[in-house]
Each structure stands twice: as C-alpha cells, then as structure tokens.
Design a protein around this nucleic acid. Structure first.
Lengths: 226, 226
DNA sequence: AGCTGTATGAAACAACTGTTTAACTCAAAA
DNA sequence: TTTTGAGTTAAACAGTTGTTTCATACAGCT
C-alpha cells in the first residue's frame, strides 16, 4: 500500500528524483548540493535523507532512472532475418548517435551516463552488464556478418570499439570539436545524417578491406622505429 | 631578478605546482582542496593565495604545465619527405596512443588534460589553439596524402575525427572497457603495439576503400527508414 | 645598527556542506 | 475522542571549504 501504484505520481520522492537527475548531470555528484535539489523539487531539506537515506543513494537511483528513460526513448532498431548486414550497421550507428550525440542541448540522462563512463562509481558495474554489454554484443554479431572470414575474439572486439569510439568521440570531445571547426562547419559537423553516413561508410570500408587485405596480423612487432 | 632563472628550482611556488598537478588530476578542481595541496607540497596554507591569487589560477597554471610536460615527453614523430603516408599514419597513431592510452597507471598530466576536454574551462581555448589544432592539422595532411583524390573539408575533418576517436576511446571509456572484456583479454586489449596496429590498419583500409568506393556522398537523405 | 620589502607562519573568518534533531501536522485506526 | 505513525518542517549541528589577517622572520640594503 505504501508503494507507489503508479510511477508518475506527484509524490515527494518522485519530485526529488525528477529534480535530482538534471542537477547531478549538469554539476556532478560533488558539486550538486542537496539544498539545490530540494529547492528545485520544492521539498524540505530533510526529505532526501528521509526517503533515500543519504545523498549517494539518491545519486545511484538517478543513474538507474537515466538509463531506463534513455533506452526507452530510443529503442534498439529491429530488423528481419534477411536484412543486409550493411543496413544493420547503419541502423546501429544511427541509434547510437541518436542516443548520445549532441542535439543542441544535451539531455540530462546522457550527461549523467557520461559521468559514469568516465568516472565509474558503484552504479557502473550494473550499468555495464544491463545496458552496455547487450548493445555491444549486438554490434559484434553485425560485425561477424560483415566480415568475410571468421574473426578472432580480439579482432572482433577491436573492430567493435573502433565503431563505438568514432561515435562517442562526438560526445566526449564535443567541446573541443566545437572549438576546432570553423563556425560555418559546426552544424554539418554534428549533423546526425551526415555523421551516421560517414561512420557507417568508414567502418564498412575498413571491415571489407581489412578482411581481404591484412586478415592476419602480420608483424608481431610494430615498434616506432618502423 | 625576482623571476626564476631556472625552472627546476625548489622554490615554494614550484613545490606547489608539482603537488597540485597530480591532485587536481586525480580529484578534479572542486574536490581537490587547498589544504591537501599545501600539505603535499609542504608549504603553508596561505601560500597558494600568495603566489597564485586564488585556487582557480593555480588550476589554470597546472593545466598549462601538464600540456607542456606531456608534449615534451612524447614529441611529435619526425619523417623525411619520402616517407610513405602509411608509415606516417602509423607513427601518428602510435604517438597519440602513447600520449593518452592507459599504461597501468595514468599519468597525471593525461588525466588533467582529459578533464579539460570533457569539461572545458577557461584553460581549454588556449589548449585547443596551442596544442590540439597543430596536432590535428598534421593528421589531416597525412589523410590528404593517403586519399586517392581531393577531399572536401568536411570529409577530411570527419576522417580525422574517426581516427582520433578510435584512439581516445581507449582512454575515455577505459573503465567501461575493463569491465567489458574478460580478465584474460584485458592486457592485450590495452596493449600499445596491438592497438597501434589495429587502428592504423582499420583506418588505412577505410580511407583506401572509401576513396574508391563511395567517394562522393551519394544519398543526401539517409533516414532511418532505409 | 636601522630600515625595507618579500616570504612565511598560525590563527581566525565567513560561507557552505550533508546530516540530524525535535517539534509539528494530520489523516486513519482504536 | 484519543492514539498512532508516517510525513513535513525549521532549526541546529559538526565539519570542511577558500580566503584573509596580522604577527613574525630574515635577507639585502644604507
């Protein structure tokens, strides 16, 4: 009875959660103050300790909420069995970019998840198992389809990270990229269509050529005296 | 006369700078306390305000110092005019990875520069102009050499970010990657030789195939209904 | 010696932090 | 009505923060 029958109720606890997410995302765990959150939520200062025990537990609950809301907002693309792997890769890249890449203002959920990637806390291990690994596994299956021959585990993983890395770079380094490109190029530089196209084609070209050209790691020593 | 003739002097100011860098890097600007820094530097609590005015100016000076020391530690690779662009790319990737990629413990300079990339402050604009842009320009010149035909500005930039992104991913997402791969794969996953080889070959394959296959952006609309 | 200006030291300051306390409200049960 | 107990409130608490103050130390100078 005490438990919330609906999750959208305007209870004190929900009001705190709704206010805490964006504030933690923008200012980080340490910089965000409980007074700030309580003011924004329009609740009493003691409410956080009453409902969550302490500030850290509220943070953990906020991270979980961010993950849930974000996955729900951009669900994983679906495809039939006869879908070309090239198309699957494009859809995957497009999904990833939509979830993380800049769209004028950064959604607080993305910002909060970024903080966990960069500075893993308690909440991160669970995040990896429940969220990142399933996504990554699906990507690796696409890569397997695209490759002309069986890949070693290491090579598979490397290719996966190369694709993910290209995508996330536009989020993690967004500030530097903005300073780097001229003003008139900035918009098309972060354009979703443009990015999806480029990263997909770049990765496809790499996987195709990698398989046919240097399938086996030839030089065990690639020292810089090359 | 008042200015330091040698930079390596064991002055109070230098001792503060030497202590501040690692602490700022590990704990961030806000979390790092002036008391902590002064204790580590074995100077009086008031010294920071005396020599740097306030905490923020000390932080800015620390970022500048990190950049200088890091560039000096791994200078840009040199090559003659007839060096193959493929070799240049390998050297570039290797240099970048050496500067940023995990080597057991992260150097504090890298950690501090990361913080600036992710959360740009005052110190970042200067960092981009003096440090990132020259590096990026050299990369773009290599890309030009590798491409079989002239590239548009946008395409050039995109390829550059694809390469940088692959490298930085192993730093920014290092925590998540460690949680992602099995324990027995972790070492070779972060191995410098292995990484340099993969990212170089992946990017080379992409650039070659990209130029010959879909040199011109064919579809202005690549919506997800593809 | 006496003066001068830089450097250091211990202490205090004022503001802010997360958390706790104890009084209070008020609907539902007895 | 009385009692109960979860929810709310304002105030206080104890600790930490960056910064300032002011006394002192001491070298280089006249």
């Amino acid at each position: 009875m005490g438990r919330s029958p609906m999750n959208r109720e305007d209870t004190t606890k929900n009001r705190i959660l709704a206010a805490a997410g964006p504030i933690f995302a923008q200012r980080g765990f340490q910089q965000a103050t409980v007074r700030e959150i309580c003011d924004a939520a329009d609740v009493n200062l003691a409410s956080i300790n009453y409902y969550f025990g302490d500030k850290q537990q509220l943070y953990i609950d906020s991270v979980i909420l961010a993950r849930e809301q974000r996955a729900q907002q951009f669900p994983f693309p679906s495809w039939s069995d006869d879908t070309l792997p090239e198309v699957k890769l494009r859809k995957f890249v497009g999904m990833l970019l939509k979830r993380v890449v800049v769209m004028q203002t950064i959604p607080w959920q993305v910002q909060l998840l970024m903080r966990e990637i960069l500075n893993p806390t308690e909440a991160c291990r669970q995040l990896v198992e429940d969220y990142f690994r399933p996504i990554f596994d699906r990507l690796l299956r696409i890569v397997d389809e695209l490759a002309e021959q069986p890949l070693t585990d290491l090579r598979r993983t490397q290719i996966g990270f190369s694709i993910i890395g290209q995508c996330l770079h536009y989020r993690f380094s967004a500030g530097v990229i903005s300073l780097m490109v001229q003003e008139d190029q900035r918009e098309e530089c972060f354009d979703w269509d443009e990015l999806t196209h480029h990263i997909t084609e770049f990765s496809l070209a790499a996987i195709r050529n990698l398989g046919s050209h240097v399938a086996v790691k030839s030089s065990p020593r690639t020292s810089e005296t090359h």
